[in-house]
């Protein structure tokens, strides 16, 4: 699905930006923040892969579109935890 791909791309860009900012400060809990953020990217990418479109030749069963509840919860949690960890690392890093 396009929306999932768009979100996964946004996560990749965010992870790249966070990595660029955090790499010079590797060590301690800033490193942990980077790891959490990378985990968030993996979760979103996995969720996106699970929701990818079937091949065009496959029979379309429209009423089989089941909302992936656990995946949505995982993505929401990963966004909050990953974003907060990077933000706290940035706040702590800018004012030691």
């Amino acid at each position: 699905m396009l929306a999932w791909r768009r979100t996964a791309a946004a996560f990749v860009v965010a992870a790249a930006g966070a990595g660029r900012f955090l790499l010079p400060h590797l060590g301690g809990w800033i490193f942990l923040a980077a790891v959490v953020n990378a985990t968030a990217v993996v979760i979103v990418a996995a969720a996106a892969l699970r929701r990818r479109l079937p091949p065009a030749a496959a029979p379309a069963v429209l009423n089989s579109a089941r909302p992936p509840g656990p995946w949505l919860a995982a993505v929401a949690l990963a966004t909050a935890v990953g974003g907060l960890s990077v933000a706290l690392a940035a706040l702590a890093g800018s004012h030691p």
């Binding site: 929306a3 965010a14 930006g17 993505v75 929401a76 909050a80 974003g83 990077v86 933000a87």
Partner: peptide, 14 residues
């Protein structure tokens, strides 16, 4: 869309 909004807000804050 809310998840992407969250990312944008975090990015702006950082």
């Amino acid at each position: 869309a809310w998840i992407r909004t969250s990312l944008a807000l975090f990015a702006a804050g950082v």
